Lab assay of single mutants.
Amino acid sequence: CHSECLGNCSQPDDPTKCVACRNFYLDGRCVETCPPPYYHFQDWRCVNFSFCQDLHHKCKNSRRQGCHQYVIHNNKCIPECPSGYTMNSSNLLCTPCLGPCPKVCHLLEGEKTIDSVTSAQELRGCTVINGSLIINIRGGNNLAAELEANLGLIEEISGYLKIRRSYALVSLSFFRKLRLIRGETLEIGNYSFYALDNQNLRQLWDWSKHNLTITQGKLFFHYNPKLCLSEIHKMEEVSGTKGRQERNDIALKTNGDQASCENELLKFSYIRTSFDKILLRWEPYWPPDFRDLLGFMLFYKEAPYQNVTEFDGQDACGSNSWTVVDIDPPLRSNDPKSQNHPGWLMRGLKPWTQYAIFVKTLVTFSDERRTYGAKSDIIYVQTDATNPSVPLDPISVSNSSSQIILKWKPPSDPNGNITHYLVFWERQAEDSELFELDYCLKGLKLPSRTWSPPFESEDSQKHNQSEYEDSAGECCSCPKTDSQILKELEESSFRKTFEDYLHNVVFVPRKT
């Protein structure tokens, strides 16, 4: 048989008469490798580009789960590009990614509803959504962080984005990388972005840091009482949809009607710091009717980097990364020049730590249904340095008659930039024990000054392991946590139920 035959053949030295091919099969003959313009397919066939392209389009058009959109890589027609490569849609070739590779997620039936953290986790790592997304989240724990972890990498949506009755959302900033909504599939009414009845939605994105392009379709905003109209108009300008909307697409009466839409800028007039305090004062603000001013709200939190936005980490279910302080308005003076500047002394802060701070007014709604208010920009203030805590785990070892090696770990709280350490030492008198000992005694162990690591005695271990207080009263049991108490109650309830079950099964009433 021919060298490319495997198993047997019907005619000697003829690659077209093989029972099976050793390498690849091409047009009725066995070959060692697939010549151009053919590609290896499933490690035994040679196919042309049209064959591989037909497989790709067949799966793409069917949208069946589990099928493969075949691509070409290293002269092979394979189910998908290997790690580190992405497909070129024009020629199906796998090309190296520039940075992290995109991950295209194809949605069944063309859309997916995100109504819980669990459903959001199914899209973790996706960068391109081939379909439409509907966000409908009523509640949950730590929602802002969970949504950002699972949806934060999405850069492109081919269909539309719909935010509907998501009472738990305060902001859409968890879509931190969303840059493009194509609108290839539109919501009824030709809408590519749809926001309806979101009672706590206050911000779409921080438009000073976020760009969003909507290729096709219109915007729809109705019944978002805490979303200011200025935020919607800003989205029109940034996304390129200005002029597409009709009169009733953006409701003037049901958007922002319960919001404090600040239209003035508060400026800080005085800032002073110490290692654990920050004193702030800002310019006074009074609405047209000074009785509408209820006070100020001061927001602050630790910020290692200057990239904080107002609604980071917030949701309507209680999660809030900001510390909020309510401040009463100052006494009002008739003389504008003698107006008191409101302020606040922030206490209990960490030394040498940068804080993000902003302040906003708290006002009631005027009778004319106009909203007044003022808010400052987010500023960054760093507390002063102070003395560091003591170095940890000092170790001293003498390696000769004239040297001592000293080692330690950095302090747990540096409280500033540590530039150097101060080492103090003092000579001590020799131990009298060394002169009084009889060095001729056998088995004498000389006193040693070398360091030995501390260890816990058996008594201390027994005390720590004991669940009861000892007789001397030195140790006591740790208080039980809520989960331990709940577990004990469940076990007790189970024992009672099981005992009742045994009584009912074992003891049967005697027939009379």
Results as ranks from 00 to 15, higher is better:
residue 104 V to M: 11
residue 105 C to W: 01
residue 110 G to W: 05
residue 114 I to D: 00
residue 115 D to P: 06
residue 118 T to S: 04
residue 118 T to P: 03
residue 121 Q to R: 03
residue 122 E to L: 13
residue 125 G to D: 07
residue 126 C to S: 01
residue 132 S to T: 09
residue 133 L to K: 00
residue 133 L to F: 07
residue 134 I to K: 02
residue 136 N to S: 04
residue 140 G to F: 03
residue 141 N to F: 12
residue 141 N to I: 11
residue 144 A to L: 05
residue 147 L to W: 15
residue 152 G to D: 11
residue 153 L to T: 12
residue 154 I to L: 10
residue 159 G to A: 15
residue 159 G to R: 04
residue 160 Y to M: 10
residue 160 Y to R: 11
residue 163 I to L: 04
residue 169 L to F: 11
residue 172 L to W: 00
residue 173 S to Q: 08
residue 177 K to N: 13
residue 177 K to E: 08
residue 181 I to N: 00
residue 181 I to Y: 00
residue 184 E to M: 03
residue 185 T to N: 09
residue 186 L to W: 04
residue 190 N to S: 06
residue 195 A to E: 00
residue 195 A to H: 06
residue 197 D to W: 15
residue 206 D to S: 10
residue 214 I to M: 08
residue 214 I to P: 00
residue 223 Y to G: 06
residue 229 L to Y: 13
residue 231 E to T: 14
residue 236 E to L: 12
residue 236 E to N: 11
residue 240 G to N: 06
residue 241 T to P: 12
residue 242 K to N: 12
residue 242 K to E: 15
residue 242 K to H: 05
residue 242 K to W: 14
residue 244 R to M: 11
residue 246 E to F: 08
residue 246 E to H: 10
residue 248 N to Q: 07
residue 248 N to H: 01
residue 249 D to H: 14
residue 250 I to A: 13
residue 255 N to F: 06
residue 256 G to E: 03
residue 262 E to G: 06
residue 263 N to Q: 10
residue 264 E to R: 07
residue 266 L to T: 06
residue 267 K to H: 05
residue 281 R to H: 04
residue 282 W to I: 04
residue 284 P to C: 04
residue 286 W to Y: 07
residue 290 F to A: 04
residue 293 L to C: 04
residue 295 G to N: 15
residue 296 F to N: 02
residue 296 F to S: 06
residue 299 F to S: 03
residue 301 K to Q: 03
residue 310 E to F: 06
residue 319 S to I: 11
residue 322 W to G: 04
residue 322 W to P: 01
residue 326 D to I: 01
residue 327 I to A: 06
residue 329 P to H: 05
residue 330 P to N: 06
residue 335 D to C: 11
residue 338 S to R: 01
residue 339 Q to G: 08
residue 341 H to Y: 09
residue 341 H to Q: 13
residue 344 W to I: 15
residue 344 W to S: 07
residue 352 W to S: 12
residue 353 T to C: 03
residue 360 K to C: 12
residue 361 T to H: 06
residue 363 V to S: 04
residue 364 T to A: 01
residue 368 E to P: 08
residue 371 T to V: 12
residue 371 T to G: 07
residue 373 G to T: 05
residue 374 A to Y: 05
residue 375 K to L: 15
residue 376 S to R: 00
residue 376 S to M: 04
residue 379 I to E: 11
residue 390 V to M: 10
residue 393 D to L: 15
residue 394 P to F: 02
residue 396 S to W: 08
residue 400 S to T: 09
residue 401 S to D: 08
residue 401 S to A: 15
residue 402 S to H: 11
residue 406 L to R: 00
residue 410 P to K: 01
residue 410 P to A: 15
